[in-house]
Write a protein that binds this DNA or RNA. Structure first.
Lengths: 187, 187
DNA sequence: GACCTCATGGCACCGGGTGTCATTACCATA
DNA sequence: TATGGTAATGACACCCGGTGCCATGAGGTC
């Protein structure tokens, strides 16, 4: 028999999500989350740097998948094509998380603090993509703008994806948003 | 003789900026800011909804100027042209605030919390521009993407502006960033 | 059996943020 | 001149997020 129940971080995240749904983010204390997970407040902060972070466990995998895809893009690809190559592995990642993503989106939408955190995660993602583009030899300004454009498309497309019912629509919604951005920025 | 010293909010903002410079954002308490402004912590929170907000007094004027410019753009202008019409009044607003903007940028750059707040201010700005575009009859998705593109250009251009020495370079840096975004997103 | 490790608990503490009531100069009105 | 209202501020208690520090105790190692 093991000394402690396994997957403390997962238990905390699950407890947090259910409590946020039941009574809202603001009205849920970290002590309550920890209690539901059979742990203490002190332990919560050993796994998550702050209360918000418990909702952002997936952002690391998102960034990893996307950046790897950028690195793996054909050498001749344009910067934006390298960036949008990330849509495929990302779509795969979200394919089976539609229900979760919707619940989570409702919680985030109801709370400005969480929206702030979401935006900085996207910004960090754009930064990681920018670096990878730079490694590919893309000039700095071009890299920044291509990464920003790609992340903006993701942001807009993702919002549409969680606002509708088809879990499989992810990839298509990204392409639609990309096409719209292209037409809007055309001179 | 007036009952209270005037411009409490301005005194608080000035005190905060100097303290953040002297000892950093994290190591400055709201009580210290209030004391330097000759007020109390409780009064600080009557003027600013939280500690971060004391650095974001200008965002309302920025949004007002930009949105007005979008509203005033010629009826035949493309959505993106209407958005970038905001660069002129915004450049005018920042013309005499270069030194302040640089100081403030250093403080924000050193603190993730402040970066989060900065990003959500930009997002709110994009939202306001989106609404104004919608009023002009621009379809929803197009409005969102045009506004996002314009704000991204502003964000990138602004970062360049505070990173260099010429206060008058603002407008030119915006145009450069816009041109780069155009070339990057071209299909 | 002594020792080490390491996830967890316990506890005191700080600072951000809020609810509530008290204070007091200024102003209107009678 | 008295009275009462208004509005910015102070005072104070309180909650909760977040941290530093030390204690605890099961598991493995020599």
């Amino acid at each position: 028999m093991t000394r402690w129940k396994p997957d403390a971080a997962g238990r905390l995240a699950t407890a947090a999500l259910s409590l946020f749904e039941e009574q809202g983010y603001d009205d849920t204390t970290v002590a309550q989350i920890a209690e539901r997970a059979g742990l203490t407040k002190r332990t919560f902060f050993r796994y998550f740097s702050d209360k918000r972070e418990v909702l952002f466990g997936g952002s690391q995998e998102l960034e990893r998948r996307w950046v790897e895809a950028v690195a793996a893009a054909p050498a001749g690809a344009t910067p934006l094509a390298a960036v949008t190559a990330g849509f495929d592995p990302v779509a795969e990642m979200f394919a089976e998380r539609h229900a979760f993503a919707r619940t989570r989106a409702r919680i985030v939408e109801a709370n400005p603090e969480l929206q702030e955190r979401e935006l900085i995660k996207l910004q960090n993602l754009a930064g990681a993509i920018t670096s990878k583009l730079a490694e590919r030899g893309v000039p700095a300004n071009e890299a920044i703008l291509a990464a920003q454009a790609g992340v903006t498309v993701f942001h807009v497309g993702f919002a549409h994806w969680v606002a509708q019912d088809d879990p499989a629509a992810f990839r298509r919604l990204m392409d639609i948003a990309l096409g719209e951005l292209r037409s809007v920025t055309a001179a």
